[in-house]
Each structure stands twice: as structure tokens, then as C-alpha cells.
């Protein structure tokens, strides 16, 4: 196996150009090390961990710029993330054990593109942008376009995720990330639901409701019909119930060793309801009647 430790992004990109499908990029290593152990070794390993300044977390252009090498625990420890991106902070806080959070990077979680990746549904809801770099140039794109299937991203085998731009959510918004798993943070989520909303001026209705679903489709997805169903409306029990069912119908979960597709649908329903109720209560000070 060939091994490289590029010191710059362009060096890394030229290695990817050179080795193509044979190359595997490694950052924190929490997924790649398992692959090396249990699958065949890649032809070549490109360790980007030592590229400087790719782990910065800083305010930038009305949002937060996150370097892909920032570890999950660095996100948790960042006041900027905690205060301005609480949805992402909640996802980071429920992301595996402390040992893993100290090692795993947000870029790795994103590029792995596992539908259950903990930070993915929150990034969709936050309408974050991926900064995608190839040897012939860089572009930004929304994560909705970035995620193309399980393990598939727009990076292909030659691109590198070089940054994540997360706009600040609207002032006064509230967001919750709900993860369903038997052992809480320790498990891969059976379902993850991110809900974010704001209230209208007199706090009688929700505005700009965004719902992201993890582990229930080939990629993390938004639930646009459900978002439209509840946006601009006052939440009552009937609407919450309808929204839960609607979100479930917008998911397309599979059955695997963790749970059945049918059960995942029930949980999407339950967590969407719960997320909406929590947002409603936080934004209006009232329980859903």
C-alpha cells in the first residue's frame, strides 16, 4: 500500500488525480481504519490530517466556516458552534463516545455520506454549503446536491471537501436534533430528525420550518412537503399528528440489522412530532394544544 501525507490541498488533489479510484482519503480514521481491518486495504492512502489550517472554526460572511478536519469534539467545544449553531452542536454532542469524538472529523462524517451520519441532516436543515475542490478549481454547492447516495458524493474520487459554510440561522430560531438509538450516543442512529423553525411576530405561528431526516433514505433528506404543511401555521395536536405522518411518508427507509423500515417510519413520525412540539414550546412558550 502506498502512503502519502500531503502538506497542501493542491498536493493532495494531485495525488488523487494520480491514483484515482485506488486512493482512499483518511482524516480522523475512525471509519477508514475499520475498512482497512475488515475489507481489503486500499491501493493507496492519502492522509490529509497534516494539511495546515483545515480544522479552523471561525465566523465568516454571516455564518460559520468549519474546516473539514475539525474534530467532532472541537465542534462541541467551540463557543461559536454552541451559541450560533445549536443544532449542529446537539448532533456533535450525540455523536458516539468521547474517544471517537476526539478523533472523528466533521469532514470525514460528511464525506462518508452514510445516511445515518450524525451531522448530515443538521447541515441540510442549516442550509450549509460544501466547499468542493478539484485540481481544476473549487466550487460551493448545497449539501442537498453534495450527497448523491450511500457513500456517494459529488467529490467522486478526485475531489476534496475543503470547507463547510454554515449561515447563521435566523435570529430567534429554535432547533432540535433528535437521535433514536438504544444506547444513545454510542450507537449508529436508527433514525435522526433535525427540526428548525422560527415563530412569526406575534408568536402565533411557525415560520420557515425545516425538517431533516437521517438514516431513512439513501441520503439524508429534507421533508419539504411536511415543512410546507406546517410553515405559517399554528401548531395544534391534529397538525402535529399530520406532520408526523407526512414526514414518515417522505422517508423511504430500508430494513437492516438495526431495525425494520416500517419501524423507522414510525420513529420518523414520532421524532418529527416531538421536534415540532419542542420548537413550538420554545418559540411560543406554549404547549401544543
Amino acid at each position: 500500500m502506498d502512503y502519502f501525507e500531503p502538506k497542501t490541498v493542491s498536493e493532495a488533489l494531485s495525488l488523487l488525480d494520480q491514483h484515482g479510484d485506488q486512493a482512499e482519503v483518511i482524516a480522523g480514521g475512525t471509519d477508514v481504519m475499520v475498512d482497512i481491518k475488515y475489507s481489503d486495504e486500499p491501493g493507496c492512502l492519502v492522509n490529509i490530517k497534516r494539511i495546515p489550517d483545515l480544522n479552523a472554526i471561525r465566523e465568516s460572511n454571516g455564518g460559520v466556516h468549519i474546516g473539514p478536519l475539525a474534530t467532532i469534539h472541537e465542534l462541541e467545544e467551540s463557543d461559536l458552534v454552541r451559541e450560533r449553531l445549536p443544532l449542529l452542536w446537539q448532533a456533535a454532542h450525540q455523536f458516539a463516545s468521547l474517544q471517537i469524538r476526539n478523533t472523528a472529523t466533521i469532514g470525514g462524517n460528511i464525506c462518508r455520506a452514510s445516511p445515518s451520519g450524525e451531522t448530515l441532516a443538521p447541515l441540510l436543515v442549516l442550509e450549509a454549503q460544501a466547499e468542493v475542490t478539484f485540481s481544476d478549481g473549487a466550487r460551493t454547492e448545497p449539501f442537498g446536491a453534495f450527497f448523491q447516495g450511500p457513500g456517494q458524493t459529488s467529490l467522486g474520487s478526485r475531489g476534496l471537501l475543503t470547507g463547510i459554510s454554515v449561515p447563521f440561522p435566523a435570529a430567534g430560531s429554535h432547533a432540535v436534533y433528535l437521535k433514536h438509538a438504544v444506547r444513545g450516543p454510542m450507537d449508529i442512529a436508527m433514525v435522526g430528525v433535525a427540526v428548525m423553525a422560527t415563530a412569526n411576530g406575534d408568536k402565533t405561528a411557525l415560520d420557515d420550518v425545516r425538517i431533516g431526516l437521517g438514516a431513512v433514505a439513501p441520503t439524508p433528506v429534507r421533508a419539504p412537503k411536511t415543512e410546507a404543511l406546517v410553515s405559517g401555521k399554528a401548531l395544534d395536536a391534529a397538525l402535529v399528528k399530520e406532520a408526523g405522518a407526512s414526514a414518515a411518508s417522505e422517508s423511504s427507509p430500508i430494513t437492516d440489522q438495526r431495525s425494520s423500515g416500517e419501524y423507522r417510519g414510525w420513529i420518523v413520525d414520532a421524532l418529527t412530532r416531538r421536534g415540532l412540539e419542542q420548537c413550538w414550546q420554545a418559540l411560543t412558550g406554549k404547549e401544543v394544544a
Binding site: V34, V182, R183, G184, P185, M186, D187, I188, Q257, R258
Partner: peptide, 10 residues
Amino acid sequence: VDYLMPTINM
């Protein structure tokens, strides 16, 4: 990863 034994938090 998927053989779930009790952890201290459960």
C-alpha cells in the same frame, strides 16, 4: 458497531 452490549449510560 452493531452488536449492542450495555454501556454505562444505559
